[in-house]
Nucleic acid binder design. Structure first.
Lengths: 222, 222, 222, 222
DNA sequence: AATGAATGAGCATTCATTCAT
DNA sequence: AATGAATGAATGCTCATTCAT
């Protein structure tokens, strides 16, 4: 994402900062604004005007850099995927015992969602869209998650050591682990309304985190 | 949501559907069309024109009967909630042993979502809306789910009999059970894309169902 | 205009008052509601729905009795003209001296406008309409005002007695006398805004009345 | 209201009007079209589509530049007020004797209304609106009329010289003078219909002008 | 690289009017 | 005499997109 300053920006050294930024900075500003706007309002509800305004640039640049609202949406989606993939890479389960490692994985999954509502929002919208962008983007297809492999390895090690069941496949476990965290966040408002108590408070969230780990670990026991 | 036929509509039995429908039929047709359109496109993406067209009535009637697009959305939301509540009432766990009863509850939860994508879609959209309609609707507030109480009773019975843990509260268990099914359906497209295999096929779905029940029951074991 | 109760309304004697009124009452209710609505909002701004609602009848009756919004407007206009003509008939200048008689005429003109803002409003709207209804209505054409004749007679008497100028024709005097009152009421809001003081207060109105009479009488002096 | 041509518009002198106008020209075209349409049909009856069409620009620009139909109406109203205020500034009563000066004032008032039916129309509509725009606009509140001060000064001079009454206040005289002209024009159609002769003909108008001056001057005599 | 001006198609909503009983 | 149901044609307003510089 780092940008090389353009020649134009360089050609008058010593002169005060040029009014115009370099292209990469503009792209980044638009992408960030797009993530915010699309996650707040969905694709249909998002406004190109608002994205340009938030990025502090002329609306036309959206079309200059991204061709269309859809093009910008795709880049926004790629950007949030790129970020979670990067964070996943940072997970080092290294020498941890299977149960410890699994606890890390579950906790990471919960924490990431807690801290990235925009990821949930964009994923949700993409699903309404029937995953059309994710299917259309080569870049997205190539962003393989290391998470599923870590999970698979951990499951196998645990099964071998006798601390995990050996009849659960990794994909199902992934979906279950992700689901018990994701659903809590994605449906927080309706759940709060139904149960008549706010599940968005800090206390409710940390209590949920403990449950998620206990529930999932228990489920994996042989 | 089904309307009681009016006396007028009844008074000529055996005669084919009248050219002129009664108000309740029109309301119902609009509500059904709204559920379909809103679940397909979300609130922002839905088109009033399309709803009217699908219901086979003039667009103005949307405003006549529901005041606004929002009003219609609210009724659509109430309608899907009413339907699941009705189905939940039909659950008779009767004399079942706790594990059997729990299996029923988990299976119902999975099956209902499998058969009602529009429920998921509307719930999802309502959450993007920050639950504003659910909070605004007295009717929705009053539609208490019997599910959570059944779950609580079953959990208690199981704990007493020593087949379930006794340190999980019902709300958390509800969210976990719902989550492992809901997430599979709500994020089916992106999950399919990530894992490179279609999770919407019949086989994938029944395999998932078995996993969900096994995973959840295992998690509840003491 | 009295209506015969319908057979339907009669066939269950002893039963409470029938829901339906007689035709004349309905017409009158609609006309009164129309005068109010048209004077409040003008022809374009008036709503047929609102008129029916205010009259307490079904909207379709507007079309049944008056054919169209325009038809109703015409009747409303006739109704306010009819009323002022009737009041004008009631003026008896009888044996009054010319100056006294003129004072009556000027005062009547002022007072009628003060008490009938709906007359001003409808007249104003009719003028924007280029007087199209007044020209289209035979009834309106025939509603000759006795006012102008009284004015003419009074002017002549006064001229003969040497208390009024004899070079003003009655039509011009009529327009001047009406204008100094009418403009005060018709443009009350903008005049108040321009002069920074409310001209709709009771005090401002009675002070204006005195001025109008003094100004006009002075103008007529030889 | 006329806009100063931008430098850009000026930089190619001699070249025909550019296909692309500048913003100020577009605003002016819309304002002029708005004055025409609003005066013809009133606020409720005016059509934004028609205004845009008459201005030769896209309808969206109305919203771009004026936010709403109301916003455009306000600007239209300001524009007609600005014009009369400008003309009023041009009145130079200079060294004229009081009666001469008053004749100028009365004549100006008559002539301005004769030549600006759109001013009458917008004022009339604004009054139906209860003066809401004039009250809402700071600009309009600040556009003090020099007319009333000229009138006051003239009245005082005349009273001192013994040619005018000294018991009429300027505001009342203003309203009377304006009223005898305004009413003739604002109600021209209904007056013509009532009196059975066209008051819009050139002859009727100049005859009315003479009457107005004679009537008002006579009224002011001591 | 960036901008201000402008547009066409569409969108929720309104309204006078008609239909069927 | 009266009503509830329904409609077609606007109407104010919005939005993604393009033009010209």
């Amino acid at each position: 994402m780092a940008s090389t300053p353009t020649l134009a920006a360089r050609k008058k050294p010593g002169i005060a900062a040029p009014a115009r930024r370099d292209a990469a900075a503009t792209r980044d500003a638009l992408t960030a604004a797009a993530v915010a706007e699309f996650s707040r309002n969905g694709f249909a509800g998002a406004r190109v005007d608002e994205i340009a305004r938030a990025a502090g640039v002329n609306k036309q640049l959206v079309y200059h850099y991204f061709d269309s609202k859809q093009g910008l949406y795709l880049v926004a989606l790629e950007s949030v995927y790129a970020e979670i993939r990067e964070k996943e890479q940072g997970l080092s389960l290294g020498e941890l015992a299977p149960v410890e490692a699994m606890t890390q994985l579950i906790g990471f999954s919960f924490d990431y969602l807690a801290e990235h509502p925009e990821f949930i929002a964009l994923l949700t919208d993409e699903n309404r869209n029937q995953g059309s962008h994710i299917l259309a983007s080569e870049r997205l297809q190539k962003m393989h998650s290391p998470f599923i492999e870590m999970l698979e390895a951990t499951l196998e090690r645990g099964a071998k050591e006798g601390v995990f069941r050996n009849d659960f496949d990794a994909i199902n476990v992934y979906i279950s682990i992700a689901g018990i965290s994701y659903f809590f966040f994605s449906n927080n408002h309706t759940l709060s309304a139904i149960f008549g108590k706010s599940l968005s408070l800090r206390g409710a969230q940390s209590q949920r985190r403990r449950h998620v780990i206990a529930f999932a670990l228990n489920a994996l026991r042989p």
